[in-house]
């Protein structure tokens, strides 16, 4: 990787991530292919490295686009690059939300706005169902994992104050039980 001897200017890093963040709608995962393409084109990071960063970013809590910006920003521009990339990713959505929030407060009683948001909400329910469907479909699950997943979800629904604890327990059980149970 050539980034060791030539760190990229933090301002360039900021502008690059700012642009990608401002122009991609549809959540963090919509940003992933755009990041891969644009950063590859600039010669900052090649495809294979990018997917290594992606795997790492997925094992850390937090929005995938944000985690990628911190780690890739560091790779191409040191800690300054890391800060530049992270702020570049966060500033556009932050101000968009504040602006829209201020605007919608004024029009939240309009029947048009209400209908629009209600329709969008219906679609989001369907899409979350779709995301779940894909999560389950794209990898081979064994019975052990499926039972843990369903049992975990049930316990979470009934004991909503213990969600964090339950999540940690699920991860530990699946991680530890993995070898014994995998067929």
């Amino acid at each position: 990787m050539n980034s060791v001897n030539s760190e990229i200017n933090p301002l360039t890093v900021f502008v690059t991530f700012f642009k990608i963040s401002a122009l991609t709608i549809g959540g963090g995962y919509a940003m992933v292919p755009v990041l891969a393409r644009r950063l590859g084109k600039k010669g900052w990071i090649d495809q294979k490295d990018f997917y290594n960063f992606l795997a790492k970013a997925q094992s850390i809590p937090g929005p995938i686009a944000f985690n990628l910006s911190i780690t890739i920003g560091k790779e191409v521009g040191g800690w300054r690059g890391s800060i530049a990339a992270a702020t570049g990713v966060i500033i556009p959505p932050f101000f968009t939300i504040v602006l829209i929030g201020a605007f919608l407060t004024r029009f939240s009683n309009s029947i048009w706005v209400k209908g629009f948001l209600k329709g969008a909400f219906g679609a989001i329910l369907g899409l979350i169902g779709g995301v779940l469907y894909r999560m389950i479909q794209t990898r081979k699950w064994n019975y052990f994992e499926i039972s843990i997943m369903i049992l975990g979800a049930l316990l979470m629904a009934f004991g909503s104050s213990y969600v964090i604890f339950l999540f940690v327990i699920i991860v530990i059980i699946v991680y530890a039980g993995d070898k014994k149970w995998r067929a």
Binding site: V131, R139, M156
Partner: peptide, 27 residues
């Protein structure tokens, strides 16, 4: 030293439970 692939697998199971919780809560 954690096996990254196994960790991601385990995290994915936990995350799926959370997505089910999200769907249940919203509905």
């Amino acid at each position: 030293k954690l096996d990254k692939e196994r960790l991601n697998d385990a995290l994915r199971v936990g995350a799926s439970s959370l997505v089910i919780l999200t769907l249940y809560t919203l509905i």
